[in-house]
Simulated scan of single mutants.
Amino acid sequence: MHERLIVPTPGRGLIELSTRINQCLAERRAGDGLLNLFLRHTSASLILCENADPDVLQDLEQYMQDLVTDGDRRFIHRAEGPDDMAAHIRSVLTANSLSIPVRAGRLALGTWQGVFLWEHRYAPHQRELVLTLLA
């Protein structure tokens, strides 16, 4: 299976994708295998994270804001505004791909795990996610 998902983002923040990915797997009648998720962007990322308490997502965003400050005076690259270079650094510090087992056509996630796209830019974007299931 090879599929492409377009994910609209409202701007900076985390968007859970687990349900949408499971729907895609069900539509393709996926069985067991290993799903590779690849995000084709350099200013957004993918993470596997706690999905039960929204405070976790808020704390992650706050920590990242403290770690990588928008418009840091040390940044030379400012082609698309003060959040541009910070978004690239955030992406490098996290991940642009994940591999997750699939069992009986569903992500084999732990009880409190979810797959999230983390948009690092303030402006809305259309992000492309490539799903490849190896059976």
Rank of each mutant, 00 (worst) to 15 (best):
V68M: 02
P101E: 00
Q62S: 12
V56C: 11
Y122S: 13
L98K: 09
R74H: 10
P124S: 12
H2R: 15
T9R: 03
V102T: 06
L134S: 11
P82Q: 03
G13Q: 05
T94F: 07
V92P: 04
E27G: 13
L67S: 11
V115K: 05
E3G: 01
F38W: 13
E119K: 04
H41I: 05
L34K: 05
T9F: 05
W112G: 02
R40C: 14
S45P: 08
C24K: 09
M85E: 10
R103N: 03
E119P: 00
W112C: 06
Q58T: 12
I47S: 13
G31R: 09
L107V: 04
A95T: 08
I89A: 03
S43C: 15
G105Y: 01
A87N: 04
Q113R: 09
L5Y: 10
G105W: 00
L93V: 11
F116W: 02
S97R: 07
Y63N: 06
C49D: 11
V92T: 12
S91Q: 15
R4C: 09
Q65I: 09
Q126K: 14
S45T: 07
A135F: 00
P10Y: 05
L131C: 09
A123H: 11
Q65W: 00
T111G: 10
P54E: 06
Q65K: 12
Q23R: 15
L109K: 08
W112F: 12
Q58S: 13
P124R: 01
D70E: 15
V130D: 11
S91I: 01
Q62G: 11
Q23H: 13
L35Y: 03
G110N: 03
L14K: 05
C49A: 12
Y63R: 13
A86R: 02
W112R: 11
L35W: 02
T132C: 12
G71T: 08
C24M: 09
G105P: 02
L133K: 05
G33A: 04
Y63L: 15
L48C: 12
R29T: 09
L34V: 10
H120E: 08
D55I: 07
S91A: 15
R121E: 10
I21N: 01
V68S: 06
M64K: 07
C24W: 02
N36Y: 06
G110P: 07
N22W: 01
H125M: 14
Q62T: 13
R127Y: 04
L5T: 05
